[in-house]
Structures are given as C-alpha cells and as structure tokens.
C-alpha cells in the first residue's frame, strides 16, 4: 500500500486488530463480524466465531475504552435446542446486529440450519440473558437489521434476500410478522459495488435521514472483493435514497484484510456513533476484528457530493 495518497475515508486504528485469534483464551477457527453497542459507558460487541468443527456461535466482548476487549469463552448465543428454533440453527448462529429501541437491546441474527439462512430476533436487557423472540424471515435471507425507531408508526427492518443480491426492507406492527416488502438500494453496474450489496452496521439516525452502511462485493477474476460503502436514506421512506457514496469508505488494503479464510474482505455489522465520530468495528478477511474511525460529517459529505448514481 502506498503512503502517498489517502485511499479510505475510514482511518484504521494503528493497534489493529482489536480482536485476533491469538488474543483469545480459547481455541477457535475464525473471527467474523460483530454487533456493537455502548451501554452505560461500556463497549459491548457480539462477535461471531466459527469453531474448529465449522459451527458458528456469538460471543460477548466487553471493553472500557473501545479498543481493548475481553472476550468471553462461553458463548452468548449458540445453536438453540428449543423446538421452535432448533431446525433453523443446526449449523449455528451468526452475524448479529444490535438495535437499541424502546429501552431494550434487540438482536437480529442469522440462523443457519436445515433450511438455509433465516433471520431471527432476540432481545436482551443486560447482555447476560437473552430471549429468542422468533424466526422472522423465510430462507434465504441475510443481513437483517432493525431500524432504531418506528417509521410511519411501524417497526422497520433491512434485509437481503439471496435472489437479486440487493437490499430490501419490510415493515411490522409486532416485530414478529413482516410484510410490505420493497427494494431499498441495488448493486451498481460498473462500480465497486457491482455484484452484491447488503446492510453492514445497523442504520443510524442522523440529521439528513438514516445513514446506511453497507457492504458491496465486486467479483474479479481472482475472487470477490468486499468493501464498505455508505448511503443516506429518507427518514420517512427509507426506500428513497437521498445520497450514495460513489466510492467505498474502506477497502481491504492491509495484510490482515487481505489474508485469511476469505481474502480481501472488510465487513461490518456494528458501529458506534460518539459525538461526531463513528467507530466502525469490522471483520477483516474472516480472520480478525478491527476498528476504523471517521468523522460522521466526512461520510455524509462523501455521500452528498457523489453524483447521483443510485
């Protein structure tokens, strides 16, 4: 990587990775992305890990400063043995996204089971016990995230049906039954996000609307490259895209982002906004968890100054 130009809007923390396999007190095969939230001044991550068998589970990590985390060995969520969930989670649970709403922490996660990938919903108040609420999508659906407030009186979520490789949204009155599905934003031919996109971190409500962080994939002859991008969605109707960055906010460049079980991946499912600074926790190469920071204003500016290519 050349030091001459600044390529990414997101600055990598010089201490990256935040969580590496060698930092753990237990053996695991892989570290995937993490949900992130700040609760009473404490940073909490729900990190997906793949064990040596190939099953995924979600582990809790805590930090006082957002940089140095203690990862719990006992998983926070693992395949359910409950009759209502068992078939949907036989191969694991993964990719949690946290939404703080109505004074509770809702977790949308992916169940991987006999029937493929489904979105499931759980809730916690204290990050010690967690209650599963339901399977909230049909297969094959990934990258689910709840909006933090109701939109036009209804709960709303983002999702990515496998077919079409684009981001959709649905509405609900009760968080368990969903409908009114529609397309939000699509891959752009000829761009870095030409082949597949999905929601990255939980949408953040900002002055201009909803900040959508998303991952975009471009297939190349040496494999896919996964980068992070951003867009701003209308507050009342998120299917209306107000602005979208033409360039990624971060791309795999460092060795730890390029080398791993999945090469050339930066992928996030958790970010924390502190004043005007956005802390983005991102998985690198399906190998470790990293931190990147940027000013919210810089992302917004990049979106708004991009030509209208939705």
């Amino acid at each position: 990587m050349s030091g001459k130009f600044r390529h990414d809007i997101v600055h990598r923390w010089e201490g990256n990775p935040v969580i590496a396999l060698d930092d753990l007190t237990f053996t695991t095969n892989n570290i995937y992305s993490a949900a992130a939230v700040k609760k009473n001044g404490e940073y909490i991550l729900l990190v997906t890990m793949e064990d040596l068998e190939g099953k995924t589970s979600i582990h809790l990590a805590k930090s006082e400063d957002g940089y140095h985390f203690d990862v719990e060995e006992t998983s926070f969520m693992t395949s359910s043995t409950d009759d209502s969930f068992r078939a949907f989670e036989t191969m694991g649970v993964r990719e949690a996204r946290i939404t703080f709403m109505e004074e509770r922490y809702y977790i949308v996660y992916l169940g991987v089971g006999h029937h493929g990938f489904v979105l499931c919903l759980a809730v916690t108040d204290d990050f010690r016990t967690v209650k599963r609420l339901g399977v909230i999508s049909e297969p094959e659906t990934k990258a689910g995230a709840l909006f933090a407030s109701k939109i036009n009186g209804k709960y709303a979520r983002l999702e990515r049906p496998k077919a079409g490789d684009r981001i959709w949204m649905s509405y609900s009155n009760d968080l368990l039954t969903w409908g009114e599905s529609d397309v939000v934003i699509s891959p752009r031919s000829g761009f870095w996000d030409s082949d597949l996109i999905g929601c990255a971190f939980t949408p953040i409500e900002i002055e201009e609307g909803w900040l959508l962080g998303y991952y975009g994939i471009k297939n190349t002859s040496s494999g896919p490259i996964t980068r992070l991008g951003a867009a701003i969605l209308d507050r009342e109707n998120p299917c209306k895209v107000i602005a979208r960055s033409n360039i990624p906010i971060i791309s795999p460049r460092k060795d730890y982002e390029r080398i791993g079980d999945m090469t050339n991946v930066v992928m996030s499912s958790g970010a924390i906004l502190e004043e005007d600074i956005l802390k983005i926790y991102y998985a690198a190469a399906d190998n470790c968890l990293c931190l990147g920071t940027t000013k919210l204003a810089d992302i917004v500016k990049t979106c708004i100054e991009s030509t209208k290519e939705f």
Partner: peptide, 12 residues
C-alpha cells in the same frame, strides 16, 4: 399473520 399483510412464525 395477524392481518394478512405481515407474516411470521414460518415453519417448513
């Protein structure tokens, strides 16, 4: 569904 519009409790 509670209303024929929103659907959940999916089972194969």
């Amino acid at each position: 569904s509670p209303d024929l519009i929103h659907w959940g409790n999916h089972k194969c």
